[in-house]
Design a protein around this nucleic acid. Structure first.
Lengths: 303, 303
DNA sequence: CTTCTCAATACCTTTCCGGTATACCCATGG
DNA sequence: CCATGGGTATACCGGAAAGGTATTGAGAAG
């Protein structure tokens, strides 16, 4: 029992005769006659009663007719489904991102555009800091991530630079500095600082620290927060001041925190990248990469 | 996309390599390699990533794997279902019968045995008199019937003689005849009779009437009943007496009716037959016919 | 570096499929 | 009663497709 034979069979049933079916499927009548007979033989049953003016279904033939249509339909559906999968029109895509970056206009635009254009894809966004993102990317648990990376991605990963973040100083409203920002960071050597764990985002912290050291500034950490939200909450509570990414400062409005821009912090550039495993050939990912490139070139034009 | 290719594909997936699959399906490895490639081409997609130590499914390959199993399973089910249909192990069978005949031991045994042996068959019994049964049989609305037929069945029908019914006289308990049966029917020429419609069972009535006429007895009908139950109810009500089949008399115990056997009525033979359209090739019917023959030959042995 | 495994390629043989020509069957109509 | 026209079945041929053997090529393991 073969798909071809089933197609012929259905044609014969619907045309009521081999000759009619022969015209419909563009196959000569004797070939059809033979295939129908082979089908009957392989099933060990009689599907038609032959008359001089056509073929009439037997009871078991009628049963096969319904099943044959189902089988043929399902084959079509399988083919269509695979094509959709292969074009990245269906399937799944998992993306890691640090929640504060969701507020960046280009990121919001990117994710919104993807969800809209590829609405058949199960698109999952995982809120993760850069460190865990990198780990899961390398383990293959994540298709893509939006995270802080050095300009050249680690081995096995590919990336696109989405945005260069700068730094900003967050001080408690109660602090005298809230009203009068210092000219230089070196004036803050005696202040209490709230800091984050290096493992949460190694690239970020290494770059921040080396930048600050170059300026002759050695902050004194008194508290550690798990992420920027936690750090800023501590600042609001007056536990100290903090250096955070500008994007986190812009997106996170917390009562009791005053943000201060400083030239020395503006000069520190934090590359925020879209990254994925180079050997991940998922079509949904390919579409996402294409969309990233598209968005980036639009961005270029805009400037 | 072909069933054969799907089988090969599944084998390759489950063995993890073309070579393994080749051993499993008893087809040389290059042939398999080629079929897999053809499958990929026909779907326009990559199903495996080739490694030196085997083949690994791609995402779309994994999707096809599940669908392929489904398709192959369904093919098997279709084949099995057709085989069952063809053996008469499933399907449907409709049978007409006059309800009073359900009490005949041989009929009860026959229907019970069929239902038990072919429990996958949708077996429907329609309570119908002989006339309507014949009509529906000829129209193909009924697969078989148990009805009064002449010894040779009408054109287009085949039959087996199941049983020879005789006649019996039913009189109201209130009648003086209930206590003293007459020797001859001719003594009843002046009695009121309850009769049935010829169309309900033409063969039956024609035979009964010709038999009675031969005996010089011309009953005077005063009431007509739709079936034997109705006729006997009228007898019970004292509206008259009736001649009914012995089987109806034995099965239908109605208060107020006394049954009288008479030699002249015993001699009238009513052939009760199992009948079907000769051109009906339903396997369920074929099994029923075989069962009838089986039962009849058992019956013969018993005597 | 050798060896082993496995996939890919080349080439041949066989099988299967479709096409043409024709026989056959039956219903219809002159 | 025979011709005709619809249909199916059979015979036979050519080409395409599938399978087999032998061999090459590419990695992984020893």
């Amino acid at each position: 029992m073969d798909f071809r034979q089933l197609q012929y069979f259905v044609a014969v049933v619907e045309e009521g005769s081999v000759s009619g079916a022969s015209r419909r499927v563009h196959v000569a009548q004797p070939a059809l006659t033979r295939q129908i007979k082979l089908l009957e033989d392989s099933l060990g049953t009689q599907l038609f009663t032959r008359h001089s003016q056509g073929m009439q279904l037997t009871i078991t033939g009628r049963a096969l007719y319904e099943d044959a249509q189902d089988l043929l339909d399902q084959r079509q559906q399988v083919i269509a489904r695979l094509a959709a999968l292969d074009n990245g029109l269906s399937g799944k895509l998992s993306l890691g991102i640090t929640v504060t970056h969701l507020w960046l206009p280009m990121v919001a635009e990117l994710l919104g555009a993807y969800r809209k254009r590829y609405n058949g894809v199960a698109f999952e966004v995982f809120p993760l800091l850069s460190g865990p993102q990198l780990e899961r990317l390398q383990q293959g648990k994540l298709d893509a991530g939006i995270l802080y990376l050095d300009d050249e991605a680690p081995a096995g990963l590919s990336s696109r630079l989405l945005h260069r973040d700068s730094l900003i100083l967050a001080v408690p409203e109660s602090s005298p500095l809230a009203e009068a920002a210092p000219n230089s960071l070196s004036a803050l050597n005696d202040e209490d600082f709230v800091w984050g764990a290096r493992s949460a985002s190694p690239v970020y912290y290494d770059r921040v620290l080396s930048h600050l050291h170059r300026l002759g500034f050695n902050p004194r950490p008194v508290q550690y927060g798990a992420d920027n939200i936690a750090i800023l909450s501590m600042v609001a509570a007056g536990l100290g001041m903090a250096v955070v990414p500008a994007s986190a400062g812009e997106s996170t409005v917390i009562p009791g925190v005053r943000y201060l821009r400083m030239k020395e912090l503006d000069e520190c550039s934090m590359p925020l990248c879209f990254a994925w495993r180079s050997d991940n050939d998922s079509p949904t990912l390919a579409n996402m990469i294409a969309l990233v490139d598209e968005t980036l070139s639009l961005e270029m034009d805009r400037k």
